[in-house]
């Protein structure tokens, strides 16, 4: 026996259990793995302003969505079901009937854009103050973006700059309801963008690829027409009597 072993060297290690070991490790990683990338609704909070600036906002330019402690909706003073909110928000954004209660849409055409750009260009040239110059420069760039949108999409009607959908909640409103409302408002904008994109380019807005320059231009133009305007308003005490 001894002699034979010496001749053959150490016997081969049995690799039969290799699979078992690998299985064990595999199961460990299967369990600990988290594949989920985080998804959610992205929002920008407004910065805190040092001094209270009261800006006069036209009633028709604000779409007020109140959610009370019992998760009930009050939209523009009317009780509403969550299922109707999307249509309501879309109506606010488009104002198809030119209603006086909804924001007045301002027509944007290439001629107006060119005129404004020329105006601002002369302002920039004549401005003496450095800050004023920058402001004019910014305004001019904004009009250039609009001109770009017009060349891509044709004349459109723009939402006034101060039109917002304002979402206010009570302190006992459930977070679930809050997210649902946010979701509906987001869906309204997405649907409008999709419709526009389908009409002009026969593609879905969500299929556009931001990494391609051509698509990026379309995305920017569509965002010009239907901007995302949900206001993360200052907390308001809903228990106080309504104004």
């Amino acid at each position: 026996m001894l002699k034979r072993r010496k001749l053959e060297g150490p016997g081969e290690i049995n690799a039969g259990s290799m699979a078992d070991i690998a299985f064990l490790l595999l199961i460990f990683f299967l369990v600990t793995t988290t594949m989920d990338t985080d998804v959610g609704i992205l929002r920008l909070l407004p910065p805190i302003l040092e001094e209270e600036t009261k800006t006069e906002v036209n009633q028709r330019d604000v779409y007020i969505v109140l959610v009370n402690d019992a998760d009930q909706l009050l939209v523009e003073g009317q009780p509403m079901e969550i299922t109707e909110l999307r249509a309501g928000a879309k109506e606010f954004m488009t104002n198809p009937a030119n209603s006086l209660d909804l924001p007045e849409k301002i027509p944007v055409t290439a001629a107006i854009c060119r005129e404004q750009i020329a105006n601002y260009r002369s302002y920039v040239a004549s401005a003496t103050d450095e800050k004023a110059k920058q402001d004019f420069q910014k305004a001019m760039e904004k009009w250039e973006d609009k001109l770009d949108a017009v060349t891509l999409l044709g004349d459109y009607k723009e939402l006034p700059g101060n039109a917002v959908m304002s979402l206010q909640t009570g302190s006992k409103t459930s977070y679930n309801m809050y997210v649902k409302v946010q979701n509906e408002l987001e869906a309204a904008v997405t649907e409008l963008r999709n419709e526009l994109c389908k009409e002009k380019f026969n593609r879905r807005y969500s299929d556009l690829d931001e990494k391609r320059d051509e698509d990026k231009r379309i995305i920017r133009a569509i965002r010009m027409v239907y901007p995302q305007r949900v206001s993360e308003a200052e907390p308001v005490d809903l228990s106080k009597p309504k104004v």
Partner: peptide, 20 residues
């Protein structure tokens, strides 16, 4: 949630995501 959002605003952390 509102209180936390206010604190984030004070800290100028404005970009938020409601994870769903």
């Amino acid at each position: 949630v509102t209180d936390v959002k206010q604190e984030l605003r004070k800290a100028s952390a404005l970009k938020i995501n409601y994870s769903t």
